[in-house]
């Protein structure tokens, strides 16, 4: 079994699906000859041909629009947006067309497209290259939003996203693209969408996160263990639709919830999770839900970006607040 980085796993999943489903098409800026800004599509054009792995002009609205058209006509396009900060011209196509194609045609057409985009901070990139705006997409009915946090889930969830008959926004945490390796059986096996992944079982507090922040969350869980506090760690993985049942079950056991995300706090996905737990799980809570999030400011440039990203200390502080209850 090969040990792959997260970005290797993306490449491997794309490679597998291009090789096994001829309706799959990869498109985006520099995905072909160049192999992608993060090398996620490296070698795919050489192997699968220029009509399957297509270099597009620098025009995100067109990339998304082409993908909608291809999907409506029976292909399974996997489009890449180079950075989340450049995704906004494509949002019109996503919201006004991809998300509603099934509804608009009363089920006659679906839109089996995937829009991949690296997101999040921590790589010392310039302005527009570090934001986490997943909540925007999670807010849109008709879009599925999936975020892997390990090579194994990048592989399995991307395959599931490509095979899903409806549009998926697949956000890749670029800070951990090459941070670690994991054994991944390159066997074409998909993982389940729309479910959380429990990374660690615990009894005293539930820590919920996704994407790159799972790293700090797991580290916080280690530190808590040293303090004698048993933390359950859940990777949400599919931000929308939310598998709130798994989180509620966990909170029913631990009585305490801390949500960790890199995106700003205001109207972040953490707010939705906290609201759902308030609606359905308040009787299980021993103390108020805590959110550890990015600050409600413009993402700072790289000298300050590690101050912006929630660190282990902030997570521990929030956990200690819940333990008072």
């Amino acid at each position: 079994m090969a040990e792959l980085t997260l970005v290797d796993a993306v490449t491997a999943a794309l490679d597998w699906e291009l090789g096994h489903d001829e309706s799959v098409v990869v498109l985006g800026e520099d995905v072909g000859v160049n192999g992608g800004v993060f090398r996620a599509t490296n070698g795919l054009q050489r192997k699968h041909g220029a009509d399957r792995v297509i270099d597009t002009p620098l025009a995100e609205a067109m990339i998304a629009g082409m993908a909608v058209g291809m999907a409506a006509e029976g292909l399974k396009p996997v489009a890449e947006i180079q950075f989340m900060g450049f995704i906004y011209p494509a949002v019109d196509q996503l919201i006004n067309h991809a998300a509603r194609l099934r509804n608009r045609t009363r089920g006659r057409l679906s839109c089996p497209m995937v829009l991949r985009a690296p997101f999040g901070g921590g790589i010392h990139a310039p302005e527009h290259h570090s934001e986490s705006t997943e909540a925007m997409f999670a807010h849109m009915p008709g879009l599925r939003v999936v975020i892997p946090s390990s090579p194994a889930r990048a592989y399995g969830l991307l395959l599931a996203a490509i095979r899903d008959p409806d549009p998926v926004v697949f956000l890749e945490p670029k800070r951990i693209y090459r941070l670690a390796r994991q054994e991944v059986a390159n066997d074409g096996a998909a993982l389940s969408l729309d479910v959380c992944y429990t990374l660690r079982e615990g009894t005293d507090v539930t820590l919920v996160s996704w994407g790159a922040m799972t790293q700090e969350t797991l580290e916080a869980a280690d530190r808590l263990q040293a303090e004698g506090v048993s933390a359950e760690v859940i990777d949400v993985a599919t931000i929308s639709p939310l598998d709130i049942e798994t989180i509620l079950e966990s909170v029913a056991r631990t009585g305490r919830l801390v949500i960790v995300h890199e995106a700003p706090r205001n109207c972040g996905v953490g707010a939705e999770i906290a609201a759902l737990v308030a609606e359905h799980g308040i009787y299980d809570l021993k103390s108020p839900v805590q959110r550890v999030a990015g600050f409600d400011t413009i993402m700072p440039l790289y000298r300050l970006e590690m101050d912006y990203l929630p660190g282990v200390t902030r997570i521990l502080d929030a956990v200690h607040v819940t333990l008072e209850g």
């Binding site: 790589i123 990139a125 090459r178 390796r181 994991q182 959380c196 079950e249 790289y302």
Partner: peptide
């Protein structure tokens, strides 16, 4: 591995036991 910034590269091997969903226990 990136056109901007610095891509953090690590040698850690992830060993995890991720379970889809929860334990189902309430």
């Amino acid at each position: 591995g990136t056109v901007v910034g610095t891509m953090p590269v690590g040698e850690t091997i992830i060993v995890e036991h991720a379970v889809a969903g929860g334990s189902g226990r309430r």
